[in-house]
């Protein structure tokens, strides 16, 4: 398809990405979220001082997919581990990458208190309303009525309660400098999500406190739909339950053009 006509490169794989192929299922938006983080680290020139903290869950092998230093946390403890790293290496850029089971269930205490302390870290939170790695069990963010392998009749709110809206909760923390919910269900929203990730890292680089981007994400395999149908599910089912928005933006970040 190349011609002798001069051409410019519009897009190529970010250098903060490793050469490894991911273990994610086809169409899983974890890959998009990873790629956006890598692109932002490239653009901000942070790769050489970045330290990532991988979670337990589908993203457990995230450290294989980035071309930068990484550690692997116990389930839910990534914000505590990131705290330990950031406190002894304050000049480094420290971020966690966590799913909804990791962050909003077993790791609820760690995320809340990292935000309360204004821990100067960046959290990328992939919310796909299900436990992916263990094969599709009910998560703290599973929608009412949604069928999973551990809510086979659909999530019954009388028995299993309601989904947790983490961003709204964390935005109440004074220590939080940036809390935004974005979505990965179409190109326009992916572009917005990337800007949010950029601002979340800018928050850390400026020392403005805890920053989190919640990304509404898909799990085609465990939702038992095609990748494209999964994106539709996000748009039609998840966005109404988890409204997109900037829940807390530090004034200095609000002024920033990215």
């Amino acid at each position: 398809m190349t011609t002798s006509q001069p051409a410019t490169l519009v897009y190529q794989r970010p250098t903060s990405f490793s050469e490894a192929t991911t273990h994610y299922c086809p169409g899983c938006t974890h890959g998009i979220a990873h790629r956006l983080v890598a692109e932002v680290l490239d653009e901000m020139g942070l790769r050489e001082k970045a330290i990532g903290v991988a979670p337990v869950g589908c993203a457990v092998f995230a450290y294989n997919y980035f071309n930068l230093d990484f550690v692997e946390a116990a389930h839910g403890r990534a914000p505590a581990m990131a705290t330990g790293i950031k406190r002894v290496l304050p000049e480094n850029t420290v971020f966690t990458y966590q799913g909804d089971g990791d962050l909003a269930s077993i790791g609820m205490a760690e995320i809340m208190h990292a935000a309360a302390r204004g821990e100067n870290i960046t959290v990328i939170f992939a919310n796909n309303a299900i436990y992916g790695m263990t094969g599709g069990q009910m998560a703290p963010t599973t929608l009412p009525g949604m069928k999973t392998t551990s809510s086979p009749y659909g999530r019954d709110v009388e028995l299993a309660g309601y989904p947790i809206r983490v961003s709204e909760m964390l935005a109440t923390m004074e220590g939080a400098g940036y809390v935004v919910r974005a979505s990965l269900h179409d190109p326009a929203h992916i572009r917005k999500a990337k800007k949010a990730i950029r601002r979340a890292f800018e928050t850390q680089e400026r020392g403005l406190g805890f920053a989190m981007v919640e990304l509404l994400s898909s799990c085609p395999t465990n939702w038992k739909v095609t990748p494209n149908e999964a994106l539709e599910f996000i748009a039609k089912q998840m966005v109404p339950a988890f409204p997109l928005g900037d829940f807390k933006v530090h004034p200095e970040i609000a002024k920033l053009r990215v």
């Binding site: 403890r77 505590a80 705290t83 330990g84 790293i85 002894v88 290496l89 760690e110 208190h113």
Partner: peptide
């Protein structure tokens, strides 16, 4: 030097874990 009163012993040891990964 770094001091954090953590929210629990679980968090405290995982902070130790993270900080230990820096070799300090």
């Amino acid at each position: 030097r770094a001091f954090v009163q953590a929210e629990s012993e679980v968090a405290a040891i995982n902070m130790v874990y993270g900080a230990a990964c820096t070799g300090k």
